[in-house]
């Protein structure tokens, strides 16, 4: 199918395979489409059909446009073309650098699943070709016979054919249920990526302030991995605040401490913080949510300190308020990709 889309008066054209989501087809052809979660929840990739036949793949998508107000509105990530079509959409921000690697599809299979807590595991995949991405980006998973895609951040900071991912089990989450209940080594998946703009830019970035909730820790590992390999950590300080509810929810703390970053654990619902402090003598342990702990122990920021956020959207919103209004870090120095 041929798709023409107008983004702020500039027309772009690309081809889409039968059944392929329009967002993914456009992005892999380099069309600068606005997106954020790419999985139907945020509404950022909203567009309006002008001509042609479009199929909606998820009628109840949380991010779907207000159909009462705009009857032809759709989400590009949840739509495919059934004929040649024309659309009006939104362009990606022009003020943020675009990652260099265009996303594409990858066939993969499970290499290993390692349990980290009762509801978190480390999933390692084997890909048929190297996966190039920038530290901090994410990828979408698709599994045969399960509808839709699910976003996960890579733990590594450099190109690899064996990327790993921290998977937290979500109640009713089709892909996380599959990983925890049915998936075994060798099981196939399809990936689409890399996606996301919250990336490390070592040529201009300075100190790093990484705020991570639960499985958002993947992003912190990815940024720290790249920063260690390219020498960034030898020149700049890195602080990580890793938040979970209770001590039983903690994982990979020793690996995090070994990165060389100054690590603080934020426990929002732990009765015996003193015991946790004794268990992890190499890191700081505090009570509270990530944004509360960030307010209490924000390092002295410099003019090029970069804050990275990853975790549940409510955590990101709370941290944004603290960083912008409380810590007065300019919004242009705060990076995050919201997906859930």
């Amino acid at each position: 199918m041929q798709v023409r889309i107008t983004l702020k008066k500039v027309e772009h054209q690309f081809s889409a395979e039968p059944g392929e989501r329009l967002l993914y087809a456009g992005l892999r052809h380099g069309v600068p489409l606005a997106y954020e979660c790419a999985t139907g929840t945020c509404g950022t990739c909203k567009a309006v059909r002008v001509t042609g036949t479009i199929k909606n793949l998820w009628l109840d998508a949380p991010g779907r446009p207000d159909h009462g107000r705009e009857v032809e509105a759709l989400l590009l990530c949840q739509s495919c073309a059934e004929s040649d079509c024309t659309l009006d959409g939104s362009p990606a921000s022009t003020t943020r650098p675009r990652p260099q690697t265009l996303p594409s599809y990858f066939e993969a299979h499970i290499a290993e699943i390692a349990s980290l807590t009762a509801d978190v595991c480390l999933l390692t995949l084997s890909l048929h070709r190297p996966f190039h991405f920038e530290a901090g980006q994410f990828v979408l998973f698709s599994v045969d016979n399960l509808s839709g895609f699910r976003a996960y951040s890579m733990v590594e900071g450099y190109a690899t054919s064996r990327p790993s991912f921290i998977i937290k089990r979500k109640p009713g989450g089709a892909i996380s249920d599959w990983v925890f209940e049915r998936a075994t080594a060798g099981a196939p998946l399809r990936l689409f990526g890399p996606l996301g703009v919250a990336t490390l830019r070592p040529e201009t970035d300075g100190d790093l302030f990484l705020l991570a909730g639960a499985s958002g820790l993947s992003m912190a590992f990815s940024v720290l991995d790249a920063a260690a390999r390219n020498g960034h950590l030898a020149r700049h300080r890195a602080d990580v605040i890793f938040g979970v509810r209770r001590a039983a929810d903690l994982f990979l703390v020793d690996r995090l401490a070994a990165t060389g970053a100054v690590v603080t654990l934020a426990l929002s619902d732990e009765a015996d913080v003193a015991l946790v402090r004794r268990s992890f003598p190499d890191v700081r342990v505090m009570s509270g949510f990530v944004h509360e702990v960030a307010a209490a122990c924000l390092p002295t920021t410099t003019s090029n300190t970069i804050a990275f956020l990853a975790g549940p959207p409510p955590m990101i919103d709370a941290c944004l308020r603290h960083l912008v209004v409380g810590a007065r870090i300019p919004p242009t120095r705060i990076r995050y990709d919201k997906f859930s």
Partner: peptide, 24 residues
């Protein structure tokens, strides 16, 4: 930008900041 309700945003002095993508 993306029609996010600005009531969800924040004011820093006379600067209004949208919470969705931090436009100011």
């Amino acid at each position: 930008h993306m029609e996010e309700p600005l009531v969800n945003g924040m004011c820093d002095g006379t600067t209004l900041i949208c919470i969705k993508h931090l436009w100011q």
